[in-house]
Design a protein around this nucleic acid. Structure first.
Length: 556
RNA sequence: GUCCCAGUAGCUCAGCAGGAUAGAGCAACAGACUUCUAAUCUGUAGGUCGGGCGUUCGAAUCGCUCCUGGGACGCCA
């Protein structure tokens, strides 16, 4: 266990014991001990509102309760240096700071595993994300979803969950037929024929490129086939190439997947019928207007949904229900779907289906990633897949760089709309948070290099207890927070806490750098201790950046 | 019309399983480079947390309601 959590746990236990000893509450009515870190330094290292919480139970004034709790506390056992009672009844704890310096040793020993924990208890979690239709290239929204899903997976893994990352390939629906037809039109156009694009075609440049490839490789041989044969060939060709392109893009974006799940495989294995049968058996299916309906309103959906259309084919929902049952059957304890904002209307019916199949409601958690608006030169950049003027993920990365793209997408909460300022992301200046953090890392590497050039062993044992200055303490506290940042980011599914944290850590480092000299040949003990400190900072920065898919350069 | 997300400093956003004087970056202003990288630091200024009502010892945070912006509402996927 991490040294900081250890200290906090001990303090919590001591507070609880003190409350019991003072006879303020019985064990069964004991409120949970809440420790918070006050914003003001005068309010100590930790504060608890226990006295206010107990006011009603003990029927006494909070300040008096606080006095009684303090009277029963074993200060030494809980590493407390000083206790204050303040405001309406806060108890402020000033801790014996010497424990904090141990964080440095802890990090330098744990290295990249610092911050790992087992709070996830090996729970099997599946995160399904991106899952863009293989009918075009990935664009902005996908890039945000990919950044979010990947960071969430990394953070949850670090917090001790067993995570599988899956991409659902919608290779069976209507849209694939449209894809085939779109390629067909572009193919004929590439052969010089005057063919109009139907209304619902995909008009992206990528489709034109595919058609050109077909002409290059096969000439006009497809023109002589039957329509069915030609469309079948184009369908397969389009799927294969577009999916390959998506895989390449994601790989380049540093977003790996463990599993690529094909919708078509659901049709082949018969699980769709099984899912419909199961729903029928559970009493949530009825026939009306020549179609088969799912009574999702039983679970709070706005209206019932069609499962089988009157032409006998499935709606998009039906294989998706089967897909989710399949996920559940694979033994996951929790399913997380990362969806774009345009799918949010779909949330209720999917959750309804999960329940109608006899599963607990909270087995599925759907995280919505809100829209991205791109700005360049103060102007909003439009994106539209259908018009062929889409800003693709590829273009964005080329334009602003991989690190900035990942960082910008993850630094904001997933459910807030994102204004992506391309000028800011590309600026090599103090305005850009990515460089700020990376620069802190490079700075440390530079110092370590110079120390080595001066013959200092940067990995030597250090007497960390000489780290006592204000800037050093700030860094130590920040380093000690890291494990909790991870567990909170994981449990709340908020990976944006990571860039926030690492930005603050970088700030502490820069501030420390400007205030104190690390390498000082006249004071080798302090030099060694500070080198150990910046080593620890380097490890945590590198670690945090890795979680969000951003590189930690040694030189800038 | 129904549902979802958002509304916090000039701008972009944190904070929201209730806590003390609401934070950061940018922009503005004033400073710091013969000193381990100035892509840095130090400081100043900037707010009716969209409005109202309620719950509470205590509300940016919870509830109700209204307003504004964005999105979704197909036997498309």
């Amino acid at each position: 266990m991490n040294i900081v959590t250890q200290i906090e746990d001990t303090l919590k236990q001591e507070i609880e014991q003190a409350v019991l000893n003072a006879g303020l509450a019985k064990a069964e009515e004991m409120p949970e001990v809440i420790l918070e870190t006050p914003k003001e330094k005068e309010h100590g290292d930790y504060a608890t509102n226990m006295a206010m919480q107990l006011a009603r139970i003990a029927k006494k004034a909070p300040r008096q309760i606080a006095e009684e709790i303090v009277g029963q506390l074993d200060a030494e056992k809980a590493s407390i240096e000083k206790i204050d009672i303040a405001g309406p009844g806060f108890i402020n704890f000033f801790m014996d700071q010497s424990f904090l310096t141990q964080v440095v040793t802890e990090i330098n020993e744990a290295k990249e595993s610092y911050g790992s924990s087992d709070v996830g208890q090996g729970k099997k979690v599946q995160i399904e994300f991106v899952s863009a239709n293989p009918t075009g290239t990935l664009h902005l929204g996908h890039a945000r979803g990919a950044a979010y899903g990947d960071a969430l997976a990394n953070v949850m893994e670090k917090a001790g969950y067993e995570v599988q990352r899956e991409y659902y390939i919608n290779d069976a629906g209507n849209q694939i037929g449209i894809l085939a037809k779109s390629i067909e039109v572009r193919y004929f156009q590439a052969l010089g024929k005057d063919v109009d694009m139907p209304e619902d075609s995909y008009r992206g440049k990528d489709i034109i490129e595919l058609a050109n490839q077909l002409v290059e490789k096969h000439g006009d041989e497809f023109a002589n086939m039957t329509v069915e044969e030609r469309l079948e060939a184009f369908r397969n060709f389009g799927l294969e190439h577009l999916l390959e392109r998506i895989k390449q893009d994601l790989e380049e974006y540093r977003v790996p997947f463990d599993s690529w799940f094909s919708e078509t495989s659901l049709y082949e294995s018969g699980v769709i019928e099984q899912a419909v049968d199961q729903l029928r058996e559970n009493g949530y299916v009825y026939e009306a207007e020549g179609a088969t309906w799912f009574r999702s309103t039983d679970f709070g959906d706005d209206k019932d949904r069609v499962l089988v259309k009157n032409d006998g084919t499935y709606t998009y929902l039906t294989p998706d229900i089967a897909y989710h049952q399949n996920k559940i059957d694979r033994g996951f304890d929790e399913l997380i779907n990362v969806w774009g904002a345009d799918h949010h209307g779909y949330v209720n019916r999917m959750k309804a289906a999960i329940q109608a199949l006899g599963n607990p409601k909270d087995l599925l958690d759907i995280k919505i990633v809100q829209l991205v608006h791109l700005y360049q030169d103060g102007e909003k950049v439009k994106m539209s897949k259908r018009t062929g003027k889409a800003v693709t993920m590829q273009e964005l990365i080329e334009e602003v760089g991989l690190d900035a793209t990942r960082y910008f997408f993850i630094m904001r909460s997933n459910d807030s709309h994102l204004d992506f300022d391309m000028d800011l992301a590309t600026s090599e200046s103090n305005e850009n948070p990515v460089y700020y953090v990376q620069y802190a890392h490079a700075r440390i590497c530079s110092m370590l290099k110079q120390a080595e050039e001066k013959g200092i062993d940067v990995n030597a044992e250090a007497n960390v207890s000489v780290l006592t200055s204000e800037k050093e303490m700030d860094l130590l506290k920040r380093l000690g927070d890291y494990p909790q940042v991870i567990t909170e980011a994981a449990s709340k599914k908020m990976p944006h806490r990571i860039p926030q944290y690492v930005f603050e850590l970088a700030g502490d480092l820069h501030s420390f750098y400007n205030a104190e000299k690390v390498i000082n040949p006249d004071d080798m003990e302090r030099t060694q201790a500070r080198i150990a400190l910046i080593q620890a900072v380097r490890i945590v920065i590198q670690n945090a950046l890795q979680l969000i898919g951003v590189s930690a350069p040694e030189k800038m």
